[in-house]
């Protein structure tokens, strides 16, 4: 869907590049997570991909054609859900959607979408009276309004309660199942882990890792199984390598001891984020 080669971007009057020679691709039909600490270049990259920032170096191809060769009609193809609420506060949700709906050639019926995200009953309320979570859900509906082929989602579940968060994640998965492609940035690593087919970690404008969450966990995790059992009133912990769990010693332990917990050494995406980005080092 997108091919990015040698992308560099420096803001006017800035000394350093915000994005410093990155390469990656977003494949059609995948959910691509773009992760990194604040100021790493995530938002800048997203703004370049959605044609808000133009004076970049390098090459970006969208569906095989240079992004610079697309006119504003490019926006017929994409939907963008920003992190912050973006609606006109004195207009109702329906008035907001109606205004934006008229700017596109192809649009969808908003009723099923609004019902799904729980805003149908409040559709005639001014969005200024909406809670933050409601505004973010409306952003999401707004992004889907033009039946896009590609979605850019910036922190789509931030500030949303778990029930609505799950609904939105289901909708994102359904969008992918119907052939849609998603570029997702989020700080909620559990969401990224649940949703993304591949993730890229960006630090100081450079990409450090691009792979599937599974492969990253294999790469950064410990290939061990940790067993905790009780012995003489104390909790004892013992680690076995993947080779050792095939040995009689491991099975003997399981049979003879009072096992309390059994964990694999698989790491979390959050730990990988900290390792790759060095956020923990900076406190």
């Amino acid at each position: 869907m997108f091919e990015v080669r040698g992308l560099k971007y420096k803001y006017p009057n800035a000394q350093d590049y915000a994005v410093d020679g990155i390469d990656f691709e977003i494949r059609q039909g995948e959910i691509f997570g773009f992760l990194g600490p604040s100021g790493a270049g995530k938002s800048t990259t997203q703004k370049i991909l959605i044609k808000l920032l133009k004076d970049y170096q390098g090459e970006i191809l969208y569906r095989g054609k240079k992004l610079t060769e697309y006119s504003d009609e490019f926006y017929q193809d994409i939907g963008v859900s920003f992190e912050m609420p973006i609606s006109f506060s004195k207009l109702t949700a329906m008035e907001n959607l109606e205004f934006f709906r008229r700017l596109y050639k192809e649009t969808v019926d908003v009723e099923p979408l609004l019902r799904r995200v729980g805003l149908w009953e409040d559709r005639h309320k001014k969005t200024g009276e909406y809670s933050k979570g409601m505004k973010i859900r409306l952003n999401f509906v707004r992004a889907l309004l033009n039946n896009p082929k590609m979605l850019f989602l910036d922190e789509p579940t931030n500030g949303i309660d778990p029930v609505n968060g799950k609904i939105m994640k289901d909708m994102i998965r359904e969008f992918r199942a119907q052939g849609g492609t998603v570029f997702l940035t989020s700080h909620i690593m559990s969401d990224v882990d649940e949703l993304c087919d591949r993730v890229a970690f960006i630090v100081n404008g450079k990409i450090r890792e691009v792979d599937s969450p599974r492969n990253l966990k294999l790469k950064y995790g410990k290939r061990v199984v940790r067993v905790e059992y009780r012995e003489n009133g104390n909790v004892v912990s013992k680690e076995f390598t993947m080779e050792e769990i095939k040995t009689p010693a491991f099975f003997e332990l399981l049979k003879t001891k009072d096992i309390e917990t059994l964990h694999s050494g698989e790491t979390t995406l959050e730990d990988i984020f900290i390792k790759v980005t060095g956020v923990a080092l900076h406190g």
């Binding site: 959605i50 808000l52 504003d72 009609e73 490019f74 926006y75 017929q76 994409i78 963008v80 920003f82 912050m84 609420p85 973006i86 609606s87 006109f88 506060s89 934006f100 700017l103 596109y104 050639k105 707004r142």
Partner: peptide, 17 residues
């Protein structure tokens, strides 16, 4: 008011020059 409500963002990502 469009700046305050970030509405320009939303208009800029529509097919409107």
């Amino acid at each position: 008011y469009e700046k305050k409500e970030h509405a320009i963002n939303s208009i800029l990502v529509t097919p409107v020059p």
